[in-house]
Amino acid sequence: MSRAHEQGPTAPPGSAGEVASVGGSAVDDAGRAETPTGRVGGGWRAVLGYWLAVYKRIWRSTVISSFLAPLLYLAGMGYGLGALIDSGDRTAVPGVPYVAFVATGLVAAQAMMTASAETTYNVFGAIKWLRTYDAMLVTPLRVVDLVRGHLVYVLMRLTLVAGVFVLVSLVLRAMDGPLALAAVPVAVLGGLSFATPIYAFSATIQREEGFNVLQRFVIMPLFLFSGTFFPLAQLPMGLQVIGWISPLTHTVALTRALGLGPDSPLWLEPWRFAAHVAYLALWAGAGYLLAVRALRRRMVL
């Protein structure tokens, strides 16, 4: 039940100073290295630099929600509940231990959680509380740089979170085979399919109350009803439809296929692989366009 996520209106006053310094140095660099196309400024790399600087300062406190929480879920649901399920006569997937079923689902769910945590209060705070974006936009940085830099940072965070989880799962034998490593980029893509639309949402809302609604009416239900802990097929038809709209269901289908390997009953034919990836890419891409548009509307009046 991850309610409180890593950053509330995170960074204490100090970080406003960091914005200035990161943004500032970027401008200096670019002043010297003006490109032939005439583009001035540090671009999205400077924005990425800001978020990395913030992360460097607060990473310790994210260890719990990023790395420990998914492992606790794996232990509690996968092993604990798994003992109960595997001893009975019913299973999630025949021949697959419940812990493997959960591990291959959790990696995707965790990517969604991380994406949501990194694009809600962080974006809203940068707009409204810390006014980080205001400070950035008085430099040559453009709105697209802000969105891209932030999303590249999210991408890095997702890679780290999914990578660690897959490695631990491999060590615990909850995932199997070299293909499991391919679950990492898939989980990252799945994370981005949430990060970009949520970014757009965060740049649009006026009051942070929207995040409670997002968390409880979108993220939480999807976490529970996207096939992470039990097959979607067990739900009534109406809920299954919602499940199939959810990008998480598609991410889980992919990570589960890769994490369990080609011999499992959940392995996918190539065209199904492609279809799931395309669906996720669609969300990520459309979300990106919406995010840029929303932030431009908000910041450039």
Partner: peptide, 19 residues
Amino acid sequence: RSWNDMDYVQLAILPMFLF
């Protein structure tokens, strides 16, 4: 001290919730 410390609250709550 800061919002980041909310994660320590999670550290106490989550294991209890699960176990």
